[in-house]
Design a protein around this nucleic acid. Structure first.
Lengths: 165, 165
DNA sequence: CTAAACAATTGACTTCATCAACTATTGAGG
DNA sequence: CCTCAATAGTTGATGAAGTCAATTGTTTAG
């Protein structure tokens, strides 16, 4: 009774074929990607609701948690981070100000280009990141209770989806 | 620190972490839920990055989009919405103020209990919601490019995961 | 050498979020 | 009936996160 009833009936068919399935009527086979995605989206949102609370366990805002997580890859220019967060560069200034005030990150002027400031996690930031990553990796109940077969299949599908194209 | 999670090492080894050990080896079967979850989480975050932009297509803030989506089920008390959003009740007041000002929702005093106010979508709100839901159901490229077999498997796994226990 | 392009910041402003305090209503018991 | 605790919503103060427009330095291109 949620999303795929009613007026979404006559949507554009994607490249999917109107071809003949034996069980063609019962299951709306036409929009497989949409079906899979809608369910995945449901699960995503169900889980995202408590991300702020999870971040708060580490006294981080949700965005700060995201930044700590991303910053593990190595030094990152402010503008690159802004791009990664899909937000304005001016937003990153304040964000980094607060994180720097807490001793989590450090601004380091780049030597090649003196306009650029590179962000690095402090030692404290690295330690926090490790704890955070372990916490994030804990699967929620909905996932943990899947069968091994489903988990293996899910893992492999996600690997294929995330594989750089 | 010597982490039980080979999986996060496996994911993060793109950068030069001072902590990455040489023992990074992928496929420990013991951590199946964690592996699957970590990948799923990756995809979630990759997609969540442009949720604000998607909401902006409808001139909604991310939270407003979320509310419009949830409000389709029927009238909802303010406090219930607050609970659903996992946020303080006082937050909902302003949120609904703005949405009411735009003619998307309506406060309706309950007759059984004059303290509560029920939220309902206006006609305009319903129309917007339909367009929004269609837009949300469009699968992102990462998903849409999966094979039919993968999509079917993913859909079925998600159904099992979301099945009320 | 000027002029355009870029990185980061600042300032004004909005939205989302919290907490504490307040109003109004409901629903107990005494 | 009357008081008292609990509940629903609002208000006010405050802070984080977001936007845009304008500014300051620093490359880089013509």
């Amino acid at each position: 009774m949620s999303d795929m009833s009613g007026s979404s009936e006559n949507l554009e068919r994607r490249g999917k074929s109107p071809h003949s399935g034996p069980e063609a009527r019962g299951d709306e086979p036409g929009d497989l990607p949409k079906q899979a995605w809608t369910l995945l989206f449901e699960l995503m949102h169900a889980h995202m609701r408590n991300f702020p609370a999870l971040a708060a366990e580490f006294e981080l805002s949700p965005v700060q948690a995201h930044v700590v997580r991303q910053l593990g890859e190595g030094p990152l220019a402010m503008s690159t981070l802004a791009n990664y967060l899909s937000c304005d560069a001016s937003n990153v200034t304040g964000l980094v100000d607060r994180m720097e005030a807490r001793g989590l990150v450090e601004r380091r002027s780049s030597e090649q280009d003196r306009r650029v400031k590179m962000l690095v996690l402090t030692e404290q930031g690295v330690a926090l990141r490790e704890r955070l990553l372990e916490r994030l990796a804990e699967p929620p109940e909905l996932i943990a209770s899947l069968s091994d077969d489903d988990l293996r299949a899910l893992r492999d599908i996600m690997r294929r989806a995330l594989r750089p194209q």
